[in-house]
Amino acid sequence: MSNRIDSHQHFWKFDPVRDSWIDETMAVIQRDFLPEDLQPLLKENQFEGCVAVQASQSEEETHFLIDLASKNDFIKGIVGWVDLRNANIEERLRHFSAYKKVKGFRHVVQGEADDFMFGAAFRNGIKALKEFDFTYDILIFHRQLPAAISLVNDFPEQKFVIDHIAKPDIKSGDIDSWKKNIEEIAKYDNVWCKISGMVTEADWKNWKPADLKPYLDVIFANFSADKLMYGSDWPVLNVASDYNEVVKTLEDYISKYSVEDQNKIWFENANLFYNLID
Rank of each mutant, 00 (worst) to 15 (best):
E44T: 13
F47H: 15
F47Y: 14
F47N: 00
E48V: 07
E48A: 14
C50D: 01
A52D: 01
A52N: 05
A52C: 11
V53R: 00
Q54T: 05
A55P: 09
S56L: 00
Q57S: 15
Q57C: 13
E60I: 07
E61W: 10
H63C: 06
H63W: 04
F64H: 07
F64Y: 13
F64T: 02
L65V: 07
I66P: 05
I66V: 14
D67L: 02
D67C: 00
L68C: 03
L68N: 00
A69I: 03
A69M: 06
A69E: 02
K71S: 07
F74E: 05
I75V: 04
K76V: 08
V79S: 12
V79G: 10
V79D: 12
G80A: 12
W81E: 12
W81R: 14
L84Y: 11
N86G: 04
A87T: 14
E91Y: 05
E91G: 02
L93C: 08
F96L: 13
S97W: 08
Y99G: 01
K100D: 13
K101R: 11
K103G: 07
F105E: 08
F105L: 05
F105A: 09
F105I: 07
R106E: 04
H107N: 10
V109K: 00
G111I: 02
G111H: 08
A113D: 13
D114V: 13
D115A: 11
F118G: 03
A120L: 10
A120Y: 06
N124K: 15
G125Q: 08
G125H: 10
I126Q: 02
K127V: 01
K130F: 04
F132T: 08
F134E: 11
F134C: 12
Y136H: 01
Y136G: 02
Y136V: 02
Y136D: 00
